[in-house]
Design a protein around this nucleic acid. Structure first.
Lengths: 188, 188, 188, 188
DNA sequence: GATGAATGAGCCTTCATTCAT
DNA sequence: GATGAATGAAGGCTCATTCAT
C-alpha cells in the first residue's frame, strides 16, 4: 500500500471515530490531527474540506453496506429469509466495527443534513423489499414506509441501548430476538 | 406574568426551535437573538451559558413528560392499558407540539451528551414498568431493557418518518397501529 | 458621533493606511486590529470581509473624488481651464491626504482586480472630457484614451516620485509645471 | 543547455507569468508548480525562497534592460535621438515580451518593496541623461527627477492602457506619438 | 536531480461571553 | 431589565518550506 493511501486511511479512520464520538460539527480538524498524529494541513492533501471528508466517509460505507444488503436480497428466496439475513447482517456489522455501524446508521439528523447525501441508503433497500412484498401479497392497506420505520426503529434503538452499555452480550446474541420481534411487527 | 418571565420564555421557545432545527452546537447565540428579536446579551440575564439554557430546556420538559407518564402508569390497571395510554400520550404530545417532542425524544446523542442530564427520562419510566411486568409475570428470561428499546425504537423511528414527511396524517392517526405493533413485540 | 461610527471610522482609516503601506493582500486582519487597537472580531461588526472593507473604502473615496471632478468640469468654461483645475485639485488632494490619494490613484492593478469595482473612476471623468473636446474641435484622428493615459501617467508617475521622496516640495508646488507639461501633451 | 538550466528557466518563466498575472504575494508555489508541471520541491533546488526567485527574476531582467538602454545612450549623438531610441526600445520590448515588460516596468510598489532591489533601474539611466542634458544646456531651474517622472509616466500609463485592451494596435505603432508627446513635455 | 507527502505557522472568520450604557 | 459593541479564543483552511525516497 502506498504511503499516501496509508495516510488517507489513517485520516479516514481517525475522523470516523471522532465524528461518532463527538459529532461532525463538534469535531475539529485539530482533534483529528492530534488523535491521528498528523499535521492539520495533511488532511487537506486528501480532502477538500472537513465536510468532504465526512461525506466521503459516509457515502463509501453506505454504498458498501447497501450493496451487501442488495446481495442478501437477491440471494433470498422469500421476504422472511431476507429479513432474517438482513438483521443478522446488521448485527454482525455492528459487532465487527461498532464505530462504523454508528456512523452509517446512527448519524444525527443534523449531521446527516450537512452531508447532502445522494446515495441510496441501506434502509431504502429494505423499504423496497417491504413495498414489493406488500404488493405481491395484496396487502395494499399496509404502509411500507411505516413498517420499515418500525423495523429499523426497533433494531437501531436496540443498537443504541447496546452502545449505552445497557445490553451485556455481543449484539449478534440478540439477533434472533430481534428477528422474532420484527416478524411480530409484520404479522397482521 | 411578569415581563421578565415573558422574555425568558421567549428565549426558551426560540432556542428550542433552533436547537431542533439545527442542533445545539450549530445554533448560535446570534441565531437565537435574531429570531427572538432580543439582544444577544439579554440571554445571559436568564441563563449562564448556551449549554445551561439547553439543559434547562431539556430537563424541564423531560420532567413534565416523565411526570405525566408516571401519572398514566399510576392510573392504569394493567400493563397493556398503560402501554396503550403511553403510546397515545406520545402521539398527542407529538401533534400538540412537534418541536418539543423532537427536543425531548429525538435529540441527537452528541447533543444529549453535552447536556450531562441527571433527570429521569420518560423512557426510564417505561423501562420500570416493563421490568415490573416481566417480574410479576415470571418472564425472568426476557430482557426489559431490550424490549423497552424495541418499543421506543418503533415509536420514535415512526415519528422520525412522520417528521420527514413520509406519513401523511396526524401522528395520532397511527397510534392504534403503533399500539398493535408494540403489543406484537411483547407477545411471546 | 455614535460610538459605533467612531469604531467603524477607526477601522476604515487604519485599514486604509495599511492597505497603502503593504497592499491589500499583504495586510492581515491582525495588522489592522493591532494598529487600530481593536479586537479582530470587531472588524466584522462593520464589514463582512477584508475585501468588503477594502471595496467600501475604495468606492466611497472614488465616488467623492469623481464627484468633485465632475463639479469642476461643470464649472469650467473650457477644456483648458477644466484641465488646469483638475490638476490643481489632484495636487491639493495629494497634499491634504497623501494616503487617501495613493489608495484612490495608485492602487496596484492586482489589488484593484480583487475589488471588482463597478463605480465610475475619476480618470473616466477626464476621459469623457477629452473625448468631448476632441469631437468638438474636429480632432477625430486623436485617440482620447491614449491622451488621457498620457495625462494621468505624467501626473501619477510624478506623484509616485514625490512619494519616494524624490521631490522636495509639497506636491501642489509642482501643479503649474504639471499643467504646462500636460498642455504640451495636448498641443498638436 | 543543461537539463538543470532548462528546469530553472522553466521555473523562472512560469513564475514570471504568474507574478505578473496575480502579483507576487498572491502567487503560490503550488501555482508555479502546477502551471510549470514540476514538483513543488524542485523550485527550492534553484531558489532559496519565493522572494529570492522573484528578486532574481527582477534583477536579471532589469540589468539587461538597463544595460541595453545604457548602450543606446552611448550610441546616441544627442539627447533627443537617445530619447527617441529609448522610447522605441521600450515599445519593442513591450511587443517582444509583454509579460517581461510588465514585470520590469509595472510591478506594483508593494511587490517592489518586497524585493529590496539594489540594482540600477532602467529609469535611473534616463534620469541621468536628463540631468546631464539640463546641466549641459544650462537649464538649472528644471527638475530632472520631475521631468523623468513625466516621461516615464506618460509612457507607462500608455502601456497600461494598451494592456487593458484600450489601444488596438501593437504598442510600437504608438511609438512616434509617444516620442512627440515626450518632446513636447521637454520643450520650454 | 526531481518528487510530492508532510509540516505547522499563520490567515480569515465565527461566536460565546462580557460590560458600559 | 435590555442593549449591542467589543473581545479574543478557537475553528477551518492555506501555503512556504523541508526532507525521505
Amino acid at each position: 500500500m502506498r504511503v499516501a493511501t496509508k495516510t488517507k486511511d489513517l485520516v479516514l479512520r481517525t475522523a470516523l471515530e471522532l465524528f461518532v464520538e463527538k459529532g461532525i460539527t463538534a469535531t475539529t480538524i485539530r482533534d483529528i490531527a492530534t488523535k491521528g498524529k498528523i499535521a492539520e494541513g495533511t488532511l487537506y492533501r486528501y480532502f477538500t474540506s472537513k465536510d468532504a471528508l465526512a461525506k466521503e466517509l459516509y457515502e463509501t460505507h453506505c454504498a458498501t453496506v447497501a450493496s451487501d444488503i442488495q446481495s442478501l436480497r437477491a440471494e433470498s428466496h422469500d421476504f422472511e429469509s431476507f429479513l432474517s439475513s438482513f438483521i443478522i447482517y446488521l448485527c454482525q456489522t455492528f459487532d465487527k466495527d461498532i464505530v462504523l455501524f454508528q456512523y452509517v446508521f446512527l448519524l444525527s439528523p443534523n449531521d446527516f443534513n450537512r452531508l447532502k447525501v445522494t446515495e441510496t441508503l441501506p434502509q431504502d433497500v429494505l423499504c423496497d423489499a417491504v413495498t414489493e412484498t406488500f404488493k405481491k401479497r395484496g396487502q395494499v392497506d399496509r404502509d411500507a414506509e411505516l413498517v420499515t420505520a418500525q423495523i429499523m426503529g426497533s433494531i437501531l434503538q436496540t443498537a443504541h441501548y447496546k452502545i449505552c452499555g445497557k445490553l451485556p452480550r455481543a449484539f449478534s446474541y440478540y439477533a434472533d430476538e430481534l428477528v422474532f420481534a420484527v416478524f411480530r411487527i409484520l404479522r397482521d
